[in-house]
Design a protein around this nucleic acid. Structure first.
Lengths: 333, 333
DNA sequence: AAGGCTCCTGAGAGCGCTCTCACGGATATT
DNA sequence: AATATCCGTGAGAGCGCTCTCAGGAGCCTT
């Protein structure tokens, strides 16, 4: 198919130098006189030379590519909010700077997990884990040996891995604080799944906020999806008809809650205030537009890569990094 | 970091065979006696041997990985509908079957494009192009030399590349036919961007449908986004206050149109029927739930991979493949 | 029984690259 | 002026794997 890619050897011959020198120029190593460097560059251009990464990585033992591992449940959960794609975009953009490749892997089946484990042990320089689910055996497996791992989201179990997270606790707390400050008395929450760190931490933040203001915690659970939010809101309304505020751990659940509130005849925000979490695009178009806690998803991707690069460069293991969230005021609270 | 990966040499020694034989077993090549095969397998397991892909691909000239190239504009456009992630999921699942890797690349800048071009020429066995935008220089560049290319979505320009597409024309036409059958008289469309094949083809389908029913074409343009749909609907309403149906080339635009119709006091579907395209999750929750043309996004990804694999296997170049769409009836039409 | 098969196995030659090491020449040191 | 230092360069040894080729053992043919 391909006629035949030129090799370094040919570049060297054309430039009238040795392969070693050509290699030096191609890799930007110093110690080459300007004239020779120029000659090699010319040869590279005229031949259209592109280094063979396999040959290179065979000797360097680097692959210059890192894996982004996403557990399929995660992809499913985040399938309809742009979180995932935003993270990927951030990862991609940041890797591009370092001229590294992004290898995307999903782990739905145990076989897939096994595949990931085998694969990552040789094929990539590092692994970014975006599987925020509970006791994932992948955590411990990857942590034990093989390339360095950086998690997106604080791992709930397993060994202490490097991670970057969004300030879920702080964001949730600030949402509650805002509701308290706005004079709300009975503040409920629709929490996310408790096998995911975002679900856990946002509930913790809610509890901190209510405790600090001496409010009772009123908790219902959802799975981050719209429907689960609607159902949770219904049960909340049944149990606590007097509630006047709800913090939902995701925008989708908040939007579901909005529908439930509407159906129950409550006015938002007059009767019940609603605050979501994520700040997805739909939040802007909700009826009424949703007040929510914004999280910097692309930045999460970028920071994961940066942390990985620091680890790869052999620097001190970073302390976990937490990215700030921000309350975005719209009309529901 | 890594202690040191076992090599085939070590496996061979442990199994008491030559490297060649060990290689045969590892690669499942025939012509190895059962006893020897078993011995090698045992050695592989006990050593935890994983073949070094760099060494392998150095000699085989395959990388067993294929690139999915996404132009950033595309990612942006599709950022808030699950199309992109669905395609990726399909691609990923299908590649996994063939035990190939997915390398994800985005091309926002010209530099990025250059990078893609250089990269793909050596690093991957094939390229899946998901950049459905107009006159992308990448098309011709990739088509000319380098690995085989399969496009997702019919390329609008450039050389004839293999592609898989969704039946945009047929889907749009069937939407119009349905509206006609439901007795709608003045059927407008909110078309998508005309530098993207989905935008072009859905407009063609609309035109076919209206022409076949002797209806006048009433066209406004959007960019697939919600806001552009809302604006387009407003201008449609201003120009053609008597219209009684709208086909929007995306669900997001249809949802925007719904908002504009509501604001103008029209009832949906009583006064104006609305049909979207895509069947994103939001369509189910629109007010009222949106009738729309469903497209099989994950299947698109799978089929792209399958076509690529056929090409890689040296089979006859496939004719372009078109995947069926299906009208999903809800409440807006 | 001799030749011809087939079947299994091992030896060895690279794939294209990086990197260490040695070496010659120019420059700096004493 | 002699030695030490440095810089630019080339030779060559692999990195771990696949794959061709040759050869030995066992079987079938005639």
């Amino acid at each position: 198919m391909t006629p035949h890619r030129p090799t370094l050897e040919q570049v060297a011959k054309l430039a009238g130098v040795s392969r070693a020198t050509a290699s030096r120029v191609v890799n930007g190593a110093g110690g080459v006189s300007a004239g020779v460097r120029e000659a090699v560059r010319t040869a590279v251009d005229s031949l259209g030379y592109v280094p063979n990464p396999a040959a290179r990585s065979l000797v360097t033992r680097r692959t210059d590519s890192i894996a982004l591992v996403v557990s399929e449940p995660t992809a499913q959960v985040f399938g309809d909010d742009p979180f995932f794609i935003d993270v990927v975009r951030g990862v991609s953009a940041e890797l591009e700077i370092g001229d590294k490749q992004l290898v995307l892997m999903t782990t739905d089946t145990p076989a897939g997990r096994d595949r990931v484990q085998r694969f990552t042990s040789v094929h990539v320089d590092g692994v970014l884990l975006l599987s925020c689910h509970g006791n994932d055996p992948l955590y411990s497996a990857l942590g034990k040996q093989g390339p360095p791992v950086v998690c997106g989201g604080r791992p709930l179990f397993g060994p202490a891995l490097a991670y970057v997270d969004v300030d879920n606790v702080g964001g949730a707390r600030s949402a509650v604080e805002y509701l308290v400050g706005a004079g709300r008395r009975r503040i409920a929450t629709i929490a996310g799944p408790q096998d995911m760190n975002a679900g856990v931490d946002r509930l913790i933040g809610y509890r901190e906020g209510t405790a600090a203001a001496d409010r009772r915690a009123i908790v219902a659970y959802g799975d981050f999806s719209r429907d689960s939010g609607e159902r949770a809101m219904q049960s909340l309304l049944a149990d606590e008809p007097e509630l006047d505020a709800v913090f939902a751990a995701s925008d989708l659940m908040a939007i579901g809650a909005l529908a439930a509130l509407r159906n129950s005849g409550r006015r938002v925000p007059d009767d019940v205030a609603v605050v979501g979490f994520d700040d997805i695009e739909q939040a802007r178009y909700a009826e009424p537009p949703l007040t929510t806690v914004q999280q910097p998803s692309p930045l999460l991707g970028r920071e994961m890569v940066r942390m990985m690069q620091r680890i790869l460069a052999g620097e001190q293991p970073d302390s976990p990094k937490t990215l700030p969230t921000q309350l975005v005021l719209r009309s529901t609270a």
